[in-house]
Design a protein around this nucleic acid. Structure first.
Length: 476
RNA sequence: GUCCCGUUCGUCUAGUGGUUAGGACUCAGGAUUUUCAUUCCUGCAACAGGGGUUCAACUCCCCUACGGGAUGCCA
């Protein structure tokens, strides 16, 4: 159901995918899926000084890992490419020229040093630090002379100096800015590359973007963007500015205060389902009390109208809880598959698939991260070791009686089912007149090296009769 | 500093003029479980402050406070 809605996720390739960016991507994705529109990925790589090898590949890989599919973008050419801004410089300069012709932009020959000095002076005089517009009034003669001279220059937007601009944001409704406060933004840098502001306006128009959904940090740039749309004679897209995701101290979520890279969360053992579900809730909420949603469910539930206005603290405690939830409720094979790499890292032999899945089914119940699963599984893959206290318990007469009784009984029959093992426990208790903790503790210590852990049957089921017997025999 | 945006339990939030202000995470207690974990139940805990408007404000308006964002030849 093509309805012409087109949204985009336009990250700059910084080398990793920020959690806040993931949410922006998700909301754009959801809005596209919900409305039957298109979701475009565009790479905003116009800052040459920040080029990072492999950053785009990593970005795309991460998007894939969390299952966020785009309809157009790098490696998925549509009719509006190229989708790298660094490959579109000719396009931007054409529109920059058009703005100059229309008197909405001008060449500025001020050097970085000039600007620095200007800023310092403004600061000293306690004035706003803004470009003072000194190059606005250069004569044609002066300009041509500098041009002929090969002086480097930038192109600046010539914004109105008085009045105010009113616009309507889908999240914040009416927003007003006085033009006085808006700077003559640089559109084309002296290296010929555009700044975000120009590139974003040009591309959103050319790529026929209908809705711009992005972080609140862009809100104050809207006047400049809207001015460009107007001067170029274009219809601006609808805007939705998302509340910020915050550190525990309420500042904008940043690297300095912990992990912000989606890759890091994934590698630590958080799962895509968790990340997507949790992050969807940071700034958006369904009508009722429901909080658990799969991606598919979000696609139908999502609505721009229910995006909240205030920032949301990224609470890792709740993230962990939610991951624990998905660990327990997702298909066993899926968890088993994802946990595999952690077992391999721990060098456990998991070639016995049946055993491995039983282990997973036991361990998934008691952890909140994929990476924590192997430590719960140690008793099934490693020889157990005992501390002094354990040894003491093992050496006691009653313990020895229990072990010998079990060895004898176990050897009587080839295989045991759950009922039979439980009956054996009862029988042991009756025959030896040992009960409760005094019975279970020695058994647990002997079989898996701890007073706490799985039920005896669970352990027997996973390890099998031979291994259980072996562990018991070693101790008598 | 200036401009912009925001403000319901510690945190994420529901709420849209009349509610015992609901849910989730965390925390505490209890039940189940021979243990641990799970699960379930119960509890603690919030409308930033002050003015209006109204018969009635968490809900609408204004001010103050606080928080955040922007203020780059970065996005």
């Amino acid at each position: 159901m093509e309805n012409g809605i087109r949204v985009r996720f336009a990250p700059s390739p910084t080398g990793y995918l920020h959690v806040g960016s993931l949410r922006t991507a998700l909301y754009n994705y959801l809005y596209a899926r919900k409305t039957g529109g298109k979701f475009i990925l565009r790479i905003e790589d116009t800052d040459q000084s920040r080029y990072i090898e492999g950053a785009v590949d990593n970005l795309i890989r991460t998007l894939k890992r969390v299952d966020l599919d785009y309809d157009e973008g790098p490696e998925k050419a549509g009719e509006f490419g190229p989708y790298y801004q660094s490959q579109r410089t000719a396009i931007y300069s054409r529109y920059a020229d058009e703005l100059i012709e229309k008197g909405a932009a001008y060449r500025c020959f001020c050097t970085a040093g000039d600007l620095q000095k200007m800023r310092e002076r403004q600061l000293a005089e306690n004035k706003d630090t803004r470009y003072d517009g000194r190059c606005r009034n250069l004569t044609e003669e002066e300009i041509n002379k500098k041009l002929a001279n090969g002086d480097p220059y930038v192109i600046r937007l010539q914004v109105p100096t008085a009045g105010e601009i009113i616009f309507y944001d889908l999240v914040r409704d009416k927003v007003t800015f006085p033009w006085e406060m808006v700077d003559d933004q640089i559109l084309i840098k002296s290296d010929g590359f555009p700044t975000y502001h120009l590139a974003n306006v040009v591309d959103d128009h050319l790529m026929q973007i209908t809705h711009v959904i992005r972080g609140e940090e862009w809100l104050s740039s809207i006047p400049k963007h809207l001015f460009m749309y107007e001067m170029l004679g274009w219809k601006p897209p609808k805007m939705a500015h998302l509340p910020l995701i915050l550190n525990p101290d309420k500042s904008k979520l940043s690297k300095r205060q912990g992990d912000v890279a989606v890759e890091d969360f994934l590698n630590k053992g958080f799962m895509p389902e968790t990340l997507l579900n949790f992050i969807a809730l940071l700034g958006w909420h369904a009508k009722g009390d429901r909080e658990l949603f799969s991606l598919k469910e979000l696609e139908t539930e999502f609505s721009l109208k229910r995006i909240s206005k205030s920032g949301a603290v990224f609470d890792q405690e709740k993230l962990k809880w939610m991951n624990g939830h998905y660990l327990k409720h997702l298909a066993l094979e899926k968890i088993a598959d994802r946990a595999r790499k952690y077992f391999l890292e721990a060098e456990y032999d998991i070639s016995d698939t049946e055993k491995y899945e039983k282990v997973i089914s036991f361990a998934r119940e008691r952890v909140s991260l994929l990476s924590e699963i192997p430590e719960q599984a140690e008793m099934f893959y490693r020889e157990i070791s005992f501390n002094a206290e354990d040894l003491d318990m093992i050496g006691q007469e009653n313990s020895q009686k229990i072990f010998r009784f079990w060895i004898m009984e176990l050897e009587n029959k080839d295989s045991w089912n759950e009922q039979e093992i439980n009956d054996l426990i009862k029988k042991t208790s009756a025959e030896l007149e040992i009960k409760g903790k005094a019975l279970y503790f020695p058994l647990r210590i002997a079989l898996f090296g701890s007073g706490h852990g799985p039920e005896i049957w669970t352990l027997y089921d996973i390890l099998g009769k031979e291994e259980v017997l072996k562990r018991l025999k070693k101790l008598v």
